[in-house]
Design a protein around this nucleic acid. Structure first.
Length: 291
DNA sequence: ACCGCACCCTGAGCGC
DNA sequence: TGCGCTCAGGGTGCGG
């Protein structure tokens, strides 16, 4: 799933398919912890609502509705938000990455992992939310109400600067990698881009946060901006489940320098990329280039 | 306040 | 073919 670039690419693709349209019917799967708002309530409250905006906050998407309520969406690890009319080949196949000829592609039919489907009164394509692992989240926020998940978010990773990271890192014993993943500090960085940014900045992911210098904090944020923006440009990563909401797979995975490249030669020095576990997540780095 | 860990869920890939 | 194991862009909640 999706980290900030994948969520932002999704937002840009889905916005024109959502904003200005009026919801006619909502289909959901059975209640589960995926639904922060019970699905029966979603089906009832969303009918007849017009979508007025789609915004991103860190890895969350927030759809504004014409009655001032808001729909909060998180894609979790395997969430996919896409148009039923133009789905990815990847969605249609259980395994394999071979491309099908365009003429053999067809519209995606909602399956048991499609937990949420919006049909609109204009008869155009449905918007679907599919999530195999159900780590995603869906909540309807009534007019004037927020959500603790949103309130807790720190500065968006693209808006943050080195001073912010440096301040947050003081007197913290956790590895800098773990700090980068803390959404209450920086909102939007995830496992891929944290590893990539630390490589570009030349800082080892295990470094205690309190031992990161101000200069390094600047370098980490500059590197983070660079990898996030480059990934947005190329349509995001698609390691396994992520697909662009309209069709093709993202291309950023071809530009990864360390993530999921254990044992491969470092692109700068040739030393083998190492992998270790930090905070229950895998971390990848070059022991020669990152200190 | 901070930190580490268990847990939520499903599927792919690997060694045997 | 199948079994058992590990791993996966996420986050929350608990106890120490």
């Amino acid at each position: 799933m999706p980290e900030l670039p994948e969520v932002e690419v999704t937002r840009r693709r889905i916005e024109p398919l959502l904003v200005g349209r009026t919801i006619q019917r909502v289909r959901t799967t059975a209640d589960s912890y995926f639904f922060l708002t019970p699905p029966a309530k979603l089906r009832q409250k969303l009918r007849g609502r017009r979508v007025t905006a789609l915004d991103r906050h860190g890895k969350y998407l927030l759809a504004s509705l014409d009655d001032e309520s808001r729909l909060l969406i998180h894609l979790g690890m395997t969430g996919q938000l896409f148009s039923a009319g133009a789905s990815s080949v990847r969605l249609l196949r259980k395994t394999g990455r071979a491309a099908l000829a365009p003429e053999s592609q067809r519209a995606f039919k909602p399956d048991e992992h499609t937990h949420f489907a919006l049909a609109f009164d204009d008869g155009g394509p449905d918007v679907l939310f599919r999530d195999v692992r159900k780590f995603g989240k869906l909540a309807l926020l009534p007019a004037g109400e927020s959500d603790p998940r949103l309130d807790k978010l720190g500065t968006d990773a693209l808006a943050a600067d080195g001073a912010l990271l440096f301040a947050a890192s003081r007197r913290r014993r956790i590895p800098i990698k773990t700090l980068l993943l803390d959404q209450s500090v920086l909102a939007g960085a995830g496992n891929i881009y944290a590893d990539e940014a630390l490589f570009v900045a030349g800082v080892r992911p295990t470094r205690r946060s309190a031992r990161v210098t101000r200069r390094e904090a600047d370098a980490i944020i500059a590197a983070l901006h660079r990898v996030l923006l480059r990934s947005i440009e190329t349509g995001g990563s698609s390691i396994s489940d992520y697909v662009q909401p309209d069709s093709s797979d993202g291309a950023y995975q071809d530009e990864r320098r360390v993530y999921a490249r254990e044992g491969e030669p470092c692109s700068l020095c040739g030393a083998p990329i190492r992998r270790l576990v930090i905070g229950q997540r895998s971390a990848h780095y070059c022991a020669h280039c990152q200190r």
